[in-house]
């Protein structure tokens, strides 16, 4: 497989602290790659450098062979990178469908039109995207009245609006109930496999990671300490030490007991 995203020697220092140090990895189209690690390990910093919110001190971020490091987020978006945030970022003063229409208006370069009625533009395309994430019925509700799990779905619809090649998801299931978590990740998985999108996501919920990631990277103190298939990561001694602990208190049984059937959870976690 050719790499969709190729990150090499990424570094960032804040006031003498090495937040990210020499991180390199690749991601292929259609692949779900999880980035895990303790708080403050540099996951968000890594994300923000790929997304363009931060400029790396050094290193390279190539998307489909094109260098994107240091470009502003809105340019990187135009090159085909969608993003969802740890705390869902949507437009509270708009309806659900208007949130998606906004991304489409931006995609079509219509932001500075002063006279047309925005609510009538790209509505059907926006409704299709909402239907894909299961929110077709709620298109005209104010976004501010949606439950948190639904807001995350709106974000996903927005992120898909520019037909991205790469999706960056920062803790996609944070703040959601377990059932919702798995439903959202299953939906994401189906959508990206169908559209051939590469996904890089961070996550604290181990059941989600082991159930849905194709590959896992572990970050600690700004460095990549392990990378590989979920089974290999589970058994990695160093990872257990800095991150998993003894595993006696991890939320669900299959993550607590390494080697148990993660695939079983995935099957059980389909849309209800």
């Amino acid at each position: 497989m050719t790499a969709l995203l190729k990150v090499q020697g990424l570094r960032k220092t804040f006031g003498g602290v090495h937040a990210v140090e020499d991180v390199s990895f690749e991601l292929a189209s259609g692949e779900l790659l999880a980035m895990i690690g303790p708080n403050g390990a540099g996951k968000s910093t890594c994300f923000n450098m790929i997304n363009g919110q931060l400029a790396p001190d050094s290193g390279s971020v190539a998307l489909g062979g094109r260098e994107i490091a240091g470009r502003p987020p809105r340019e990187i978006w135009r090159l085909g990178v969608g993003r969802t945030f740890q705390v869902a970022a949507t437009y509270a003063s708009m309806t659900v469908v208007e949130n998606v229409q906004m991304a489409l208006l931006s995609l079509h370069g219509q932001l500075f039109r002063l006279w047309a009625r925005a609510a009538a533009l790209h509505r059907s395309e926006a409704l299709e995207l909402l239907a894909a994430v299961g929110l077709g019925q709620r298109a005209d509700e104010p976004c501010s009245t949606l439950a948190y799990g639904d807001l995350k779905r709106v974000e996903l619809a927005i992120a898909l609006a520019n037909r991205p090649a790469l999706l960056l998801m920062d803790e996609p299931t944070a703040g959601m109930a377990p059932l919702e978590r798995n439903a959202l990740m299953q939906l994401t998985r189906d959508l990206v496999k169908e559209r051939g999108i590469g996904v890089l996501f961070t996550e604290h919920s181990m059941d989600v990671v082991f159930a849905h990631a194709d590959r896992i990277m572990v970050l600690a103190r700004g460095r990549l300490i392990a990378e590989g298939a979920p089974a290999a990561i589970r058994d990695d001694r160093q990872v257990r030490e800095v991150y998993f602990g003894s595993g006696r208190l991890v939320r669900t049984a299959h993550a607590a007991a390494p080697g148990s059937a993660a695939a079983g959870t995935r099957a059980a976690a389909g849309p209800p």
Binding site: N51, R74, A89, M94, M102, A103, A118
Partner: peptide, 18 residues
């Protein structure tokens, strides 16, 4: 709408090309 988008969530706006 773009003005409101920038007010409601600059983060979301910038990461969708606004």
């Amino acid at each position: 709408y773009a003005m409101r988008a920038g007010r409601d969530s600059p983060l979301r706006a910038e990461s969708t090309g606004i």
